[in-house]
Design a protein around this nucleic acid. Structure first.
Lengths: 156, 156
DNA sequence: GCAAATTATTTCAAGCTTAAAGTTTCATAT
DNA sequence: ATATGAAACTTTAAGCTTGAAATAATTTGC
């Protein structure tokens, strides 16, 4: 590792730090608002919503480890959230014939119906909360964040 | 409220939803990495770091409510984090002469020194993690996120 | 002056989160 | 067949988080 021109590196570093702080504040602001509305309107939480959203996209079900990987949270975490969703009748665990360590987690009929309603409201809220972002800006930001992601993946 | 052209609104809504999902995933990915490094390298946490960063910028100290507002978290939350920082000797509460409901929270000498070290590492990490974002992109993103923020503020 | 409303903070219960340790099941190599 | 190790998941302990209720101090309106 050879040291680059230090002042330049530091300037770029400061810009990236500023970017990170803005990014974090924007997502926390939006997240807080969504969390509050999910609670008030549907008496549910963002983590529950996230799990249901993942399952909604996979009618055949997902393994706990799939959920954990997809949602970027620890596996122990998913256990608790799914437990609660199961006890509310929105999600079901189905033991598998082959590998008895695993179980397929999927939305129940009730869970699927409930999610469809919440998701529609959620999409409206996000549209409203990001309303100040023009469509063109939105697409450009998506492009940047996508390229960030693809550059990031395959690390560690 | 007059309904706009529905398909167009829906398209914009989908783009904004996609943007929100990308934004959330990007910040969660970075956040997870920073959390892990703070733990491994300095045996601390992101919330503690955030509180210390806020206090570092205000040597005269901050009220609990200032911290809570600035960090976008509930006031009950800040109480616990500050309690732990106090018990670690990094932060001190100073009762005020005038208003006895409040206390000025500030970094101790030790806390200030500790923070300076951690912050330097943190800035380096962020520079590394966002290394794939060019300086120009970084500045453009900052601009967009700033305009989002200023449009957002003064709501509720 | 004093009751009522407001403000600053803490406490509490429930839930989310992680990392680490534990359990059960499966796969592989003797 | 049987140990050894890996994989999938759960449990646990500690800490973070929220919203609501409680406490205490200040300010406001009569």
């Amino acid at each position: 590792m050879v040291a680059g021109p230090l002042p330049a590196r530091s300037e770029a570093g400061k810009d990236r730090l500023r970017l990170w702080i803005r990014l974090l504040r924007a997502s926390r602001t939006i997240e807080a608002e969504l969390r509050e509305r999910l609670k008030k309107e549907f008496n549910t939480t963002l983590p529950r919503f996230d799990v249901m959203a993942a399952l909604y996209r996979s009618p055949e079900g997902m393994l706990m480890s799939d959920l954990s990987r997809f949602l970027l949270v620890s596996n122990g975490n998913v256990t608790g959230i799914v437990d609660r969703l199961v006890s509310e009748g929105l999600v079901a665990r189905a033991r598998r014939n082959g590998d008895r360590r695993t179980s397929m987690v999927r939305l129940t009929e009730e869970g699927s119906k409930a999610f469809a309603v919440i998701a529609a409201a959620h999409e409206g809220w996000v549209g409203e909360l990001l309303g100040t972002v023009s469509e063109e800006e939105a697409r450009r930001l998506i492009g940047m964040l996508n390229s960030f992601r693809s550059n990031w993946e395959g690390r560690e």
